[in-house]
Design a binder for these strands. Structure first.
Ligand SMILES: [Zn+2]
Ligand SMILES: [Zn+2]
Ligand SMILES: [Zn+2]
Ligand SMILES: [Zn+2]
Lengths: 164, 164
DNA sequence: AAAATTTTGAGAATGATTCTCATTAACAAT
DNA sequence: ATTGTTAATGAGAATCATTCTCAAAATTTT
């Protein structure tokens, strides 16, 4: 059992599945938020926990539903606010899929790609390699200041691709 | 002067500036739409004209305002509908910038990158090269069906980048 | 020109996101 | 542990981009 801010955590953090390789763990995110002057509240903890636990990207409504299982008082407004904070602090990205739907994806400094499945919202991560490094150099040479946390390529994953 | 569907066009199409290298010209788009069974109407023509003429990406409201200078009756609903049609038919992409705002960018089959400036909405086009080809191969090998028309990299262009 | 069909404009409806504000919770300093 | 300061919250109202509705108009076909 782990004690954080007087809260008991029995979850084995190492066993959690992340929807994206680079999503930091709850503890690391809480620490970072705390150091940035944010308060670590129950609802925020619940939302962060839910996002990290998810095996796929979740819509704000889905995050709400799951967060309420941890803390029933969580409101939708807080889900949105927490997503904002997490984005602001560089812990996650939100990517629109189609007309509704979002994918919540990781945030990582080095340029790399995410293959986001439109249908099942899974996110496959391409590790930074010589290609993405070359692209990064190219951006730099053009004076273009890259502001994303990752570059999302939208499509259908192997499972969801009828043709493949 | 050019005659299309009994409409007189005095615009020198070759002198238009495109916000993206691959945006087809009005005529080509009209032809393509027509061949797909869409009717070439005044409002659609106005919207297409406006988008192609723009030096930067426009929001739907901005498209409306400009289209009304060509055909005052154009409605916002038609702007949205036309954007949908153009997207559906692979003539343009819409990329969210921040909480509001869109960038309207080109549509091109071969994988390539757009550097979209968050501030001035300019779009710099990276031509397909060996890196994007390598990435395309990688996607193919992973069974991932790429569905975008181009990959948008959001950031600040050299002009708008205070640090650069 | 008339018929068949699509597209349109205007404004209502929707629905995701943001805002408001009184209340509560977190944190730091006692 | 208690208190004071201040950020964060929940509930629901408000906003605003987008979509929908439908009778009227425009386009294309006959
Ligand atoms: Zn990543
Ligand atoms: Zn999938
Ligand atoms: Zn392009
Ligand atoms: Zn710029």
């Amino acid at each position: 059992m782990i004690l954080i801010n007087n809260q008991k955590y029995t979850t084995l953090l190492t066993e959690l599945r992340y929807n994206c390789c680079m999503l930091k763990r709850t503890l690391a995110i809480q620490k970072a938020l705390s150091e940035s002057g944010y308060r670590i509240t129950q609802p925020r903890r619940a939302v962060i926990e839910v996002i990290l636990r998810a095996r796929r990207s979740l819509s704000p409504e889905e995050v709400l539903a799951r967060a309420r299982k941890i803390d029933p008082s969580v409101s939708l407004a807080t889900v949105y606010r927490t997503l904002d904070v997490l984005h602001e602090q560089g812990h996650l990205n939100r990517v629109r899929i189609g007309k509704k739907g979002y994918a919540l994806v990781c945030s990582e400094r080095e340029l790399h790609f995410h293959l986001v499945c439109k249908r099942c919202r899974s996110v496959v991560e391409l590790q930074p390699d010589r290609f993405s490094k070359a692209l990064m150099t190219q951006l730099h040479n053009l004076g273009f200041a890259w502001q994303q946390n990752a570059i999302e390529i939208i499509g259908l994953c192997a499972k969801c691709n009828p043709a493949g």
